[in-house]
Design a protein around this nucleic acid. Structure first.
Length: 260
DNA sequence: AGTACCACCTGACGGC
DNA sequence: TGCCGTCAGGTGGTAC
């Protein structure tokens, strides 16, 4: 589930709990998240401190004072957990930073669909891994240009990390809901004004989600997220929420007020 | 080249 | 009670 807003919140956690504090030790738990060796992470972070953080799409970067960058991706079950006492440690840690002052910061990922890596150059790493521009860095015109260029279904384009980085299954549905657009609409069938509305919905949805701390409890009842259930009442009209699959992913939308 | 789909993971849940 | 199938969804690889 971690998408752009969730990862941005993890970045803030990392900045608050991890930056500036000397790292006394590192624990690495074997698993498929490792795209580099635990030894490499120890070499770059052990005895060092983190200087700054950066997020791009669903990726989180943290620079060590030796100049290298730690890369974290959260798959669908990943998260960061700062803690002090061992009994507060999360259940499936893959990487834990132990700070000199006795605090710890765990990267936990139960299902191991996330990843841990190290690079000397985040921009080149992103390029090498085909990650497109961050959704919040793209202006309205740039977003419209991306949509205009695509013939496939809208939702698939929104989630295509090569074109727009940061949007996943849940917020793609939310964005389409706010734009009053059917998830299987095709960009080619839509006029410029509609695409502009979609571009605005991308920004507004992601930014507002951040304001609500990506917590569905805090989101207005007029959002789709609190009603993401087959047969639920649409919070905007009297329609009912439908569930379908779009390119293999479960998709929720209102058949009455989201048009093609 | 662009698009669609499965495998990778693990745990929760429903049906029998 | 317990087993099995299905679902959850980000990404990478493959097939079309």
């Amino acid at each position: 589930m971690p998408e752009l807003p969730d990862v941005e919140l993890f970045r803030r956690t990392l900045a608050r709990a991890g930056v500036g504090h000397p790292i006394a030790g590192i624990t690495a738990h074997r698993g498929r998240v490792w795209r580099t060796s635990p030894r490499t992470v120890r070499r770059h972070l052990g005895g060092h401190r983190l200087e700054t953080t950066r997020r791009h799409g669903k990726y989180l970067f943290a620079r060590s004072d030796d100049g290298s960058w730690l890369i974290l991706h959260f798959g669908m079950t990943g998260f960061l957990a700062p803690y002090r006492d061992e009994d507060e440690a999360p259940e499936h840690p893959r990487l834990v930073l132990h700070f000199e002052d006795g605090r710890h910061l765990a990267y936990d990922d139960q299902r191991q669909l996330g990843r841990v890596d190290v690079t000397l150059d985040p921009d080149r790493w992103l390029e090498a891994h085909d990650v497109g521009p961050d959704a919040l860095d793209l202006g309205e015109d740039a977003l419209v240009a991306i949509f205009e260029d695509r013939r496939g279904v809208l939702k698939t384009t929104l989630m295509d990390q090569k074109r727009i980085a940061g949007i996943g299954n849940v917020y793609a549905d939310e964005i389409l809901f706010h734009a009053h657009l059917h998830p299987e609409a095709r960009a080619g069938d839509l006029d410029r004004r509609t695409l502009r509305r979609l571009a605005r919905a991308v920004h507004r949805t992601l930014e507002d989600t951040l304001k609500y701390h990506a917590d569905p409890e805090e989101m207005p009842r007029t959002w789709l997220l609190p009603h993401r259930e087959e047969g639920a009442r649409c919070p905007r009209c009297e329609g009912s929420i439908r569930k379908t699959k779009v390119s293999g992913r479960s998709t929720y939308y209102c058949a009455a007020c989201q048009t093609r």
